[in-house]
Computed example of a mutant assay.
Amino acid sequence: MGTLTVEGADLGYGDGPAVLSGITVTARPGEVLAVTGTSGAGKTTLLNAMAGALATRSGTVTVDGVPLTGRDHAVSLGVVLIPQDNGLAAILTAAENVSVAVIATGGSPADARRRTAESLDALGLSGQANQLIDELSGGQQQRTALARGLALRGDVVLADEVTSELDAANRQRVLDLLRAEAARGAAVVFATHDPEAAAACDRELHLADGAATWPRP
């Protein structure tokens, strides 16, 4: 499984000021790493860099020592990003959103059917499998995006605020599923502003004022 390392990274957008400076962190197989901080602290920026979607201004992002060259390269190395904005196709059903992603990353149609059913069931969405995304509530859409990410069986799983619209029972369900991803050997990074969710993770990296600290190594 993959070890994802960010080393001395400065991160920002365009010609704007750096959002984060001198960030060094390693996400290890078998653990859930919480990335915490207030809104605007840089949690999504860091996960985008870890996913290969944002190039570093300096420093490196590597998976098992291989520097990421972009999002497609990261996908080929088993890096799954579950984005904050869900990124679901509104014209597809919940099941189609999951199965299309599995097939796009090399899964067979049979794999797609099986993994789609398993992941939707794990998130309590079997009854919504054939509903269009626009017919789902915000929380159901968030769980569908998570089901899609989990169905990809990544070596590195990056989950960005994936419990923000969920009630307590579903939040615990998601935390259990992220823990299960780590148990099968994935490196899991969970960006959250929820202190209770962060406390359930193995380690915590806190972002504030453009820098990172370790309140709970």
Rank of each mutant, 00 (worst) to 15 (best):
V19M: 06
E161L: 00
V63C: 14
V98M: 11
D10K: 06
D64E: 03
A110M: 14
L152M: 12
D111F: 05
L88R: 04
G127L: 06
H193Q: 13
G37I: 00
Q131W: 12
L46C: 05
T213C: 01
H73I: 00
G2F: 00
L132S: 13
N97C: 08
A198P: 10
S58N: 09
R115F: 04
R179K: 11
S39Q: 01
V19F: 08
G65T: 09
V63N: 15
D209R: 07
L47A: 05
G30Q: 03
P217T: 02
A212R: 02
R171C: 05
Y13A: 09
P109V: 12
N130T: 15
V102G: 10
Q141E: 13
V79P: 04
V174T: 10
T24I: 01
H73P: 02
L81I: 06
A110D: 15
L136A: 12
P17G: 15
A159H: 07
A186S: 13
L11G: 07
R143V: 06
A89L: 14
L88C: 01
G149S: 12
T45R: 07
L20C: 05
G12R: 10
D72L: 03
A41C: 06
N170W: 09
A145R: 08
L152P: 11
R114L: 15
G16P: 00
L132D: 15
A9G: 08
L68F: 07
N170L: 02
N130M: 14
V188T: 02
D10N: 10
L77G: 05
I91H: 11
D64N: 10
A145I: 08
Q172N: 14
A94V: 04
D15E: 10
S99G: 14
A129S: 13
T144I: 05
T26Y: 01
V174P: 10
A183P: 04
A200G: 04
L4Q: 11
A9D: 11
N170K: 11
A104S: 14
N170F: 11
S21T: 15
Q131T: 12
A186H: 13
T45A: 13
V100N: 03
A27Y: 01
A208Y: 00
A95L: 08
E196A: 09
A145E: 04
V102Q: 04
R115L: 15
A74K: 08
R113I: 05
V98T: 11
T62M: 03
G14A: 09
M1A: 05
A169I: 09
G127R: 07
T93R: 02
G2T: 07
